[in-house]
Design a protein around this nucleic acid. Structure first.
Lengths: 246, 246
DNA sequence: TTTATTTGTGTATATTTTACACATTACGAT
DNA sequence: ATCGTAATGTGTAAAATATACACAAATAAA
């Protein structure tokens, strides 16, 4: 980043001191992260929301976020929020987009970096006592506080695109899952119906699933086989070229 | 963004004033944008670089960037830089990623939002007098200042992925172009060779090219037809489903 | 034992991708 | 004008992939 070119087309060499003063003086902005935390439960895609505690947005829900600390990396701030809200470390986390419209926050200029995270809803206990923190059905739209609807849309769109070409979805499932669960997940995220036989054929032909030898338990019908995803094999054999196609 | 949850799991409603003071008090950070500006010239992919005027990085090149003004949207800051350096408005611009490691800038905490831009090198006059602003060949690696190599890599990777599924490339070409120019562009960006007949077949079958009826001029061989890209038709008929494939 | 439900499987067809060669056109040199 | 050079423009056969589609087997519940 070329702070030194600040405004005018400067040609001289600047010292670190000059730039430090530029950085420290005027142009400082509050920075936050907001997390779109997806879960998958009862064959529905969910997002973790909390009641906005800002008077202006009373009654509306908002994403989970916080200001970034002065000595904190952006992703560290996102992981801090995830840990705080879900109790989990090591979640899938991907930066999606930064939102910085001048008027986006009523308290002044706050630029926010949006992250998308995927969690297995089995693996955690929410502290749902506070401010109505809850898993919200993605298909039942609520008007979110701030520009959080835009942020959510950006993250959901990204998820829909990305899940088609990358093995993200498994983060939303138990380690061992049936093909039906996997297909339900894809259908929920993409909001489409898929042909069951072709779906199976596709995943088997990609050859990244490991048959665990175990079967589903406690299902009220013929139980299916349980699989794990083979991340090592994926890393070795993943496609590099998907072809030109608009 | 849920500033109100700052730190503790607050449960009470906060007033705007409370939050304003949080925003204004401590956690402010300098914010910049950096632009990875791509061009295409003599069948090579280029990036616009400038000599770093920071003593610490003397001799190295850096991307074009600047601090974001307090009342300026992020994309507005990026467009400002583009206008300043290329003289052009209305360039292709896409936000790519935000870089905010605590130690990334020697002058203190500076978080930067990276943008990728595509320009037709015919259409502008660079003000190349200043600080050795120049089109740098993407394949001849220079060690860039700051974390600009990471930023560049992120933008280049994004471009390589995106050009395969979206009609971006045309921003790097004249409005009217031959299929050979288009193929050269794809080969340069993706750094691969493509079969000429299949490349043509692919683009013709997508059916987004308009035959202008004109031919190349001043080529030392049989001239090719010139085409335009049909953005309207693309918007109507673009693919929504590319299939599950890793 | 019967019923309801879901798993697991294969094939035929259509579509897409890939590999590959030769005649045509224009320019430039002689 | 002729010839050499270099790139354009075009089609087909084979392989790979995607799609549509139906029935027997396994289990739980009644």
């Amino acid at each position: 980043m070329a702070l030194a070119e600040n405004g005018k087309l400067a040609n001289k060499i600047k010292t670190l001191q000059t730039i430090q003063s530029e950085v420290e003086s005027s142009n400082r902005i509050a920075l936050s992260v907001d997390c779109v935390i997806f879960g998958f439960d009862e064959n529905k895609l969910k997002v973790l929301l909390i009641r906005s505690d800002l008077k202006k947005y009373q009654g509306r829900y908002s994403l989970l976020g916080d200001l970034v600390y002065p000595n904190e990396d952006l992703s560290a701030a996102a992981y801090r929020i995830l840990k705080q809200r879900t109790g989990l470390n090591d979640l899938y986390l991907e930066q999606v987009e930064t939102f910085g419209s001048v008027g986006r926050h009523p308290a002044g200029r706050v630029v926010t970096v949006a992250y998308c995270s995927l969690v297995n809803v089995q693996h955690h206990k929410l502290r749902i006592l506070e401010n109505d923190l809850h898993w919200h059905d993605v298909k039942s739209t609520t008007e979110l506080a701030f520009d959080h609807q835009d942020i959510f849309d950006a993250c959901y769109n990204r998820l829909q695109k990305r899940i088609q070409k990358h093995p993200l979805g498994f983060n939303l499932l138990p380690k061992k899952f049936s093909l039906r669960e996997l297909q339900n997940l894809y259908e929920a995220i993409l909001d489409i119906k898929l042909d069951r036989r072709n779906f199976r054929k596709k995943f088997f032909s990609m050859d990244f699933l490991i048959d665990t030898g175990e079967m589903e338990q406690d299902v009220p019908h013929r139980p299916g086989k349980l699989y794990k995803f083979n991340y090592e094999k994926y890393e070795k054999k993943k496609k590099k070229w998907f072809g030109i196609d608009f």
